[in-house]
Every structure is written in C-alpha cells, then in structure tokens.
C-alpha cells in the first residue's frame, strides 16, 4: 500500500504554499515549515469538520488564540484529499501557566461557556444506581472488610447523598436544548502560551456536554494553582456573569459525582501491599477533600439553585 504521506505532503505544499516542509511527527501529524511548526489534522467526517470550523470562527477575535484552520490559496479552510480532508493549524509548544493569568483564562472560559451552545448527546444515567450497584458488587466480592474496605463502606452514605444530588441537578436541566458543548478531546489544561496569551486547541472530536471539561479543568487548577488562584479566576468570571445558573449547576453535578470513590472501590481488588493500600486511601481522601473545598469555594461565588443543595 502507498504511504499516505505521498499524497498528503504535496497537497499541503500546493495548497498552503509551504516552500520547505518536513514531517516531524506522524501521529498527531506535525510539520516544520519556513513559517514555523504546524499541526495537520486529517478528517473523514465533513459535517463535523464544518462544525469545528464554525466553532473556531465564533471564538476568534478575543484576547486568546484558538487553533483555527489555515486558509488555502483558494480561500478554503481545508484540503480535500481522496475521501479525507486536511486542515493546517498553528502548533505552539510552551504550556500555558494558570496562576497569574486568571483574567485571560476567565476570558477563555467565558468565551467557551457563552460562545458555543448546541444540542449534544447526553446519555441519561443514574449515578445513584451506579453507586448502589458498585457497592453491592464490592460487598459480594468481600472487598469491604479490610481497613480500606471499611473506609469505603463508611463513605457510602455520603456517596449516595452526593450521587443523588448529581442526579437531581442533571435531571432539572434534562430538557434544556442548547447547552455548553465542547469537543470530547478538549483539555484546557493542555493549552499553550503564545505571545502573552493563551492558545487553546479545540481538537477534532465530536461535541459533548462541556461542563465535564470545565469541572475537570477547575479541579486541575485547584490542585496546581491553589485556592487563592482559582478564587481569583472565579472572581473574574463572576464579574462577567459567567457561568449561568444551568452551567454552574451542571458543573456542580460533575463534582458531586463520586468518581474518586468508584476508582477507590475498583482499586480495592488490586492492592498488592501496604504501600499501595496507603496510596489508594490517600489518593481517595485527597481527591474527595479537594472536591469538597472546590464546591464550597465555587458556591461562595456562584450561588447554587435554591431548591437543590447538599443539605437537600
């Protein structure tokens, strides 16, 4: 079979007028050119590609960069090659820092939260049922007897309460049509620094509800930047009236979901020695406490819905 690069490289050279082009990496494809390093994306789903083009256009013009598609010589934003489409993007390398850049990051979050709204597949699932099922299975397997098992068992009532809260928050917005969406592979934490601002990559995957990515990002921020820094981020966001009530409730739902407990139970069966047992307990307790601290902090900036609170 022919090497696909034999088709791709000349197509890139002709359409983007690169005089020098060297393939640096194949997956994800990165090239070096006389105009710097570029990332090449290969698409097989044209409607998805067009959706991505439109999202990036919506987000352009702000104080930050988005990995927009380069225009070809003929002005198109992609190059058809056989049944595939190529797009060319900037590829900066320096990771963006969080602390000290709260204002820029608030712009990024606000633009993503207010800018891209659409219907997205959100499979209905009950976290409470998952918690009950996981608990019963672990109990039947005799995993809840040791020291770690007892900790998991003792946490169960709180886990149930949080799972119930997550379910209630989500069910309140189940019928909502246009919600925050983000491509599934987006990771804001992996954004890059470029010319005094942030460069975010929207990737190329299908859209999913975006609150999960935000919840994860804020947790990562809490871990790396600390409470003061994320407090500054929330303060900037609050001045911008972002996030709206629905989005903040759905972000809370992500945090209420006791995934650290699920992970802990899953690990119980595979803990070979005392060190790994201690590590598992530590990791569970740290994640749980961080989440609790973050929820409390978040609630001081963005008041939770009157009817849905942890106290019931």
């Amino acid at each position: 079979m022919n090497d696909p690069l034999q088709q791709i490289v000349p197509a890139l050279q002709v359409n983007y007028r690169f005089r020098e082009l060297k393939v640096m990496r194949r997956q994800p494809m990165t090239i070096s050119t006389e105009r710097g390093r570029k990332k090449i994306r290969i698409w097989d789903d044209e409607p998805l590609l067009k959706r991505h083009i439109s999202w990036r256009r919506q987000l352009s013009g702000g104080r930050f960069f988005v990995d927009r598609m380069y225009a070809t010589q003929s002005g198109r934003l992609f190059v058809p090659v056989g049944r595939f489409f190529l797009t060319c993007h900037d590829a900066p390398r320096v990771p963006a820092s969080l602390s000290g850049n709260e204002a820029i990051w608030a712009d990024v979050c606000a633009a993503l939260i207010t800018g891209i709204r659409d219907a997205a597949d959100d499979p209905q699932r009950s976290v409470l049922e998952q918690a009950d099922r996981t608990f019963s299975e672990a109990d039947r397997a005799g995993l809840l007897s040791g020291e770690e098992g007892v900790l998991a068992r003792k946490s169960y009532p709180t886990v149930r309460k949080r799972a119930e809260l997550a379910d209630r928050l989500r069910s309140a917005y189940r019928k909502s049509g246009r919600r925050v969406i983000l491509p599934e592979d987006v990771s804001l934490r992996k954004s890059k620094a470029l010319l005094g601002t942030v460069f975010i990559e929207l990737g190329q995957s299908r859209p999913v509800p975006g609150c999960r990515a935000f919840a994860r990002f804020f947790l990562e921020w809490m871990k790396e930047g600390g409470t003061d820094s994320i407090g500054r981020l929330f303060s900037h966001l609050k001045k911008m009236n972002v996030p709206d009530r629905e989005t903040s409730d759905l972000i809370r739902a992500e945090w209420y979901e006791p995934d650290e407990w699920f992970r802990f139970l899953e690990n119980l069966a595979h803990l070979p020695n005392e060190t790994s047992e201690r590590k598992a307990v530590e990791s569970f307790e740290t994640a749980r406490d961080r989440k609790n601290r973050l929820i409390r902090l978040f609630d001081t900036f963005f008041r939770p819905s009157g009817t849905i609170t942890e106290s019931g």
Binding site: R35, G36, R63, F65, A96, S97, G100, N101, I104, A193, L194, L195, G196, T197, V198
Partner: peptide, 18 residues
C-alpha cells in the same frame, strides 16, 4: 504571560505569519 502592548501588535501579525 504578560499582556504587553507590543504583544498586541505581535499577536495581530502572528495571524499573518509575520
């Protein structure tokens, strides 16, 4: 990351690969 004035011009020119 600093939002300096010269960065603003550089950011504009970056959009032209200049």
């Amino acid at each position: 990351m600093e939002d300096r004035e010269d960065f603003q011009i550089q950011r504009i020119l970056f959009q032209y690969d200049l």
